[in-house]
Nucleic acid binder design. Structure first.
Length: 421
RNA sequence: GUGGUCGUAGCUCAAUGGUAGAGCCCCAGAUUGUGGUUCUGGUUGUUGCGGGUUCGAGUCCCGUCGGCCACCCCA
């Protein structure tokens, strides 16, 4: 174990990585706000108990958990939904329904890392609480699609596969399968796409034939038809397809469930979500009962997809390059002028300009090189010209002399922006 | 957690069991006030770590840690 590296599955974000991460966060936030969602944040550490029996063994078996110094069994959150359900149950009377909340945070799982899956990742969570109507499901799927579209991704790049757990519970009810077995059977159906057919058949027993037939024929229901219709009305039908093989591993889902994949089938799921109408009631012991639905989208797989699609990658690189640029580089050509330069640097920064300068005596050539590398649009040179300042437009290399008293106005004109902070 | 595979400078990679190298990056210069060019010089390794075989190990063997891939599983 070297101290020079982060722990397995954890990442450091160097400036370039951080810029890319912020690019993703900014778009997540922008699109969620476009849909009228408000941002919130929950605690990153929770009692381990919160996840037991609510999320399913999948997540609980891979919790990043430990005993704290107060002998509490705690876990770094693997997902947001249980926290959301708890918070909503405790505060629901403070808000009009439906709630439309989103959150951007870090989540943890203790498992062996692999491409696309680390022990830590960031995800966008968008949830709608207190709305039974299918319109909420349609809105949520549309939001999920629009989040990807804002990265320059199209229906040729990704697809949302949609299913309905009620489709399967109805299927099981018709065949008189006791409700206690539903969860278990749904898990088997969920895995059917990932394991050999005969192994699944063995687990399903005499249900194997009808299940396989249904998976093969694609499944169909009035609710799923209406869902697709709603998306078609928004012009988003090309982004979705019905796939009743999608069940999702989490035990708390009750209705519509969906997962988002890259069309090329190269990566694991980019996002996933669905309805969890009973979870809030379960966590509050029946004190509060509200229908709910939501989805989560992780940064790791999304980044991989963006890097894979040239259009999306270039858009990100362009935005990142633009964001790191400074506005003005101040060249101190004569050290006697340093104090005068710093006085004006302070004024420029107060006005909101991004300004940099050399902190120690530096050759002029190096200073211009630094200006170039920092992407500055303007260089201000303080030297023998004082009380005038030499203003250089770096892209055009044009120079002019401005009296230092008129500099702020001149700079403001150059950038064509207001001069208030 | 299981299996496979890999591990050499900050990065990308060389080095038939016989003295550890290149490019890039970084730093400093090229007669003292103008830019991603050019030239010169310079730093960096206990070859992931620990054992073993051998006259001699970056190279072969074992262990360990870490990366990648598959399984498991999937936020």
């Amino acid at each position: 174990m070297t101290l020079m590296q982060p722990l397995p599955g954890f990442r450091d974000f160097l400036p370039e990585d951080c810029a890319k991460r912020n690019y993703i966060f900014a778009r997540w936030r922008r699109v969620a706000r476009r849909y009228g969602f408000v941002e919130w944040e929950g605690s990153p550490l929770e009692p381990t108990e919160l996840y037991k029996k609510k999320s399913g063994d999948e997540i609980v078996g891979q919790l990043f958990n430990f005993t704290d110094k107060g002998e509490r069994e705690v876990a770094l959150r693997p997902e947001l939904t249980p926290t959301l359900a708890r918070v909503v149950a405790a505060h629901e009377r403070e808000f009009k329904k439906p709630l439309k909340w989103f959150s951007i945070g870090q989540f943890f799982r203790y498992e062996k890392q692999q491409r696309g899956r680390l022990r830590e990742h960031f995800q966008l969570n968008c949830d709608i609480i207190g709305e039974n109507d299918l319109a909420a499901d349609i809105e949520l799927v549309a939001l999920c699609i629009d989040v990807l579209r804002t990265f320059g991704l199209t229906e040729k790049d990704f697809v949302v596969r949609i299913s309905d757990r009620e489709f399967w519970t109805g299927f099981l009810r018709e065949r008189n399968v006791p409700a206690e077995r539903w969860d278990e059977l749904l898990q088997i159906i969920d895995r059917s796409g990932r394991e050999p057919r005969d192994k699944t058949a063995e687990k399903l027993g005499k249900l194997a034939e009808p299940v396989f037939a249904t998976l093969h024929s694609g499944g169909k229901s009035e609710k799923l038809d209406r869902l697709i219709g709603g998306l078609r009305a928004r012009g988003l039908a090309d982004f979705v397809q019905i796939d009743v093989g999608i069940v999702r591993g989490l035990a708390y889902y009750t209705g519509i469930v969906f997962e988002l994949f890259d069309r090329a089938g190269k990566f694991r799921a980019i996002a996933g979500g669905g309805r969890y109408d009973n979870l809030i009631a379960q966590l509050s012991d029946g004190a509060v009962s509200l229908p709910a639905l939501g989805f989560a989208m992780g940064d790791v797989v999304l980044s991989e997809l963006i890097n894979e699609i040239p259009r999306a990658r270039e858009a990100m690189q362009k935005a990142v390059a633009s964001d790191r640029k400074i506005d003005i580089y101040v060249v101190i050509a004569k050290e006697e002028r340093r104090a005068d330069a710093l006085a004006q640097i302070q004024q420029l920064r107060d006005r909101g300009y991004r300004v940099d300068y050399p902190m120690t005596p530096t050759k002029v050539a190096r200073q211009f090189q630094a200006a170039e590398e920092a992407g500055a649009a303007l260089a201000l040179l303080y030297g023998d010209e004082w009380p005038q300042v030499k203003v250089k437009n770096l892209p055009t290399r044009e120079e002019s002399l401005i009296d230092h008293g008129a500099l702020l106005d001149s700079v403001a004109k150059f950038f064509n922006v207001g001069s208030s902070a």
